[in-house]
Amino acid sequence: MVNEASLEAGLDQGSEGVRAVIGERLSRLSAAALALAQAGAVLGQGLEFRRLRAVADLGEDTALQGYEELLRAGLLREVEGRRDAFLSHDRVRETLRDALSGPGACCFTSARWMP
């Protein structure tokens, strides 16, 4: 789960402190979980597993492991009774999107418009 003390310390330092705390959390993720989180940042809210997996270009088993890792880390939340999930906070999404650059960014961005 998200370490509340670290997050509060980051808030005391302003937006750069929050970004640092989020960046530190993201740096601990596996490659699969990070790819799913980046895909989620581009796709926005209401994230369906099949779309996340397609945009992240991961096999089903690998994507499922990454998805579960994001849930355990508190970076992704599911809503009971719905088939989609949400990144835990707008700042998480912003930090992930801001970190995307170069050729990979255009691939993720164009995926946002996938049916």
Results as ranks from 00 to 15, higher is better:
Ala9Ser: 10
Ala9Cys: 00
Gly10Cys: 01
Gly10Leu: 09
Leu11Phe: 10
Asp12Phe: 07
Glu16Cys: 02
Gly17Trp: 05
Val18Gln: 11
Arg19Gln: 13
Ile22Ala: 11
Gly23Met: 08
Arg25Asn: 06
Ser27Arg: 14
Leu29Gly: 04
Leu29Glu: 01
Ser30Met: 01
Ser30Leu: 00
Ala32Pro: 03
Ala32Glu: 15
Ala33Lys: 03
Leu34Thr: 05
Leu36Trp: 05
Leu36Ile: 06
Gln38Tyr: 06
Ala39Arg: 08
Leu43Ser: 01
Arg50Met: 00
Arg51Lys: 13
Leu52Phe: 06
Arg53Asp: 01
Ala56Gln: 07
Gly59Asp: 10
Asp61Ala: 14
Ala63Arg: 11
Ala63Trp: 02
Leu64Glu: 09
Gln65Val: 04
Gly66Phe: 05
Tyr67Leu: 01
Glu69Ser: 01
Glu69Ile: 00
Glu69Val: 03
Leu70Arg: 08
Leu71Thr: 09
Leu71His: 04
Gly74Pro: 11
Leu76Ile: 05
Arg77Cys: 07
Glu78Trp: 03
Val79Met: 10
Val79Thr: 15
Glu80Asn: 08
Gly81Phe: 11
Gly81Ser: 12
Phe86Asp: 15
Arg91Phe: 09
Arg91Ile: 00
Val92Asp: 14
Val92Arg: 14
Leu96Phe: 05
Leu96Asn: 04
Asp98Pro: 10
Gly102Pro: 15
Pro103Tyr: 09
Cys106His: 09
Cys106Tyr: 08
Phe108Gln: 12
Ser110Leu: 11
Arg112Asn: 11
Trp113Gln: 11
